[in-house]
Simulated assay, not measured.
Amino acid sequence: MGDFEKITEQDSLYSNLEHMPIGECISAINTEDQKVALAVKKALPQIEKLIEVVVHQLKKGGRLFYIGAGTSGRLGILDASECPPTFGVSSELIQGIIAGGNKAIRKAVENAEDNTNQAWKDLQKHQISSKDVVIGIAASGTTPYVIGGIQQARANQLKTGCITCNPKSPLVVSTEFPIEVKVGPEFVTGSSRMKAGTAQKMILNMISTTAMIQLGRVKGNKMVDMQLSNYKLNQRAIEMLMGIKNISSTEAELLLKRHGSVRKALENE
């Protein structure tokens, strides 16, 4: 693997954690967290390239799949599950798949991440095609489930991306459009749910939000296609219409009831 170095497993910059007062402990975690956004900033050119591919494939009628194990898998599912309510898209458009299946969302499934063939089997359940994009999420860049899935996706002419915190890792080498974020050692040695997980979340936010904006699911800066599934979202929609159309809350409420979404209310009145 050339000069691949497993930064995510390097020793913490802090020692004797069990003797740290709470204030000192959280201050040190905060110091480490501040490094994450700067590390992500350095990866922006890679992030931009991958988003361009995602947008191109989605416009062609493709879908976006995240694959990961453990924290990485859960973060992919989290991002995917937020897209339908936020942007009014189908739950099929962006999907998260975790090693070990849905039960692994809450509890670790033993050895699930060690199977190199399972991710491709999981993807095939969704009638995956060359129009789709697969993004492998693995802080270490060495997770067999993710690497195997990406390699087989590429072999089947799919566009592939990844998010990892170990540059030049096996996952990076396997991926067409890799994103490498060097966040450095974790506060608790090897606990990649911390800085690595935060970096992954920030990048996933960028990918899905920017892609949805490019696909026209935001107007101005407003979530005009959001699903009105609770009181808070209904109130937000009413306030949007009041502001955009300069009308009263009663008028806005009537418009929403008539049309069912902010976009339809704007386009049909």
Rank of each mutant, 00 (worst) to 15 (best):
M206N: 07
V53Q: 10
I29M: 15
I77Y: 10
E176W: 00
R217G: 02
S15G: 11
H126R: 14
G220W: 12
V181L: 01
K35A: 13
N117M: 12
C165P: 10
E18A: 14
S248E: 04
L17R: 06
T31V: 10
I179Y: 00
S174V: 01
R106G: 09
E82W: 11
Q127S: 14
V218C: 00
I244L: 08
M223N: 08
K103P: 10
S249E: 13
E9I: 02
D122F: 05
V54H: 04
I150D: 05
L44V: 13
T86W: 11
I128Y: 00
V183Y: 06
V146H: 11
S208P: 01
M206E: 09
Q34E: 13
G190K: 03
G161Y: 07
Y14C: 05
I128K: 00
E253M: 10
R106P: 03
I29V: 15
R258F: 00
T8S: 10
L233E: 01
A69H: 05
S174N: 09
L228D: 02
I247H: 03
K49T: 11
Y66W: 08
G68D: 03
T175C: 10
A37E: 14
A104Y: 02
M1K: 10
V181F: 03
I29G: 02
G61H: 02
E239I: 11
T175Q: 03
S248D: 11
L78T: 12
V183L: 06
V172N: 02
Q157A: 14
S140R: 12
G68F: 02
T71H: 12
P84Y: 05
A108T: 04
T175A: 01
Y145S: 06
G62H: 09
G243N: 15
I163K: 01
G70C: 12
C83L: 09
E176L: 13
V183K: 06
E24L: 15
I147Y: 04
M226R: 07
Q124P: 06
I26W: 09
G62C: 09
A265H: 03
A139S: 13
L44W: 11
P144V: 07
G70A: 09
F187K: 10
A252V: 07
I98D: 09
E92M: 08
A108L: 05
E253G: 12
N30H: 15
R154Y: 04
T142K: 14
E92I: 03
S140D: 06
L64N: 05
T160C: 06
C25N: 15
R106I: 11
N115G: 09
K219G: 14
S174A: 15
C165E: 08
L44I: 14
N166V: 02
N166G: 02
K219F: 15
L123Q: 07
N115K: 14
S12L: 08
G148P: 05
I97H: 01
M202F: 08
A196Q: 03
G216E: 01
T210N: 05
K195C: 04
E251N: 13
S27R: 14
A139D: 07
H126Q: 13
I163F: 11
R263F: 06
S91G: 13
S90G: 04
K264E: 14
K232S: 01
G141A: 08
I51V: 15
N102R: 11
G70D: 10
D114S: 10
A69E: 12
T164S: 13
A138S: 15
K59H: 09
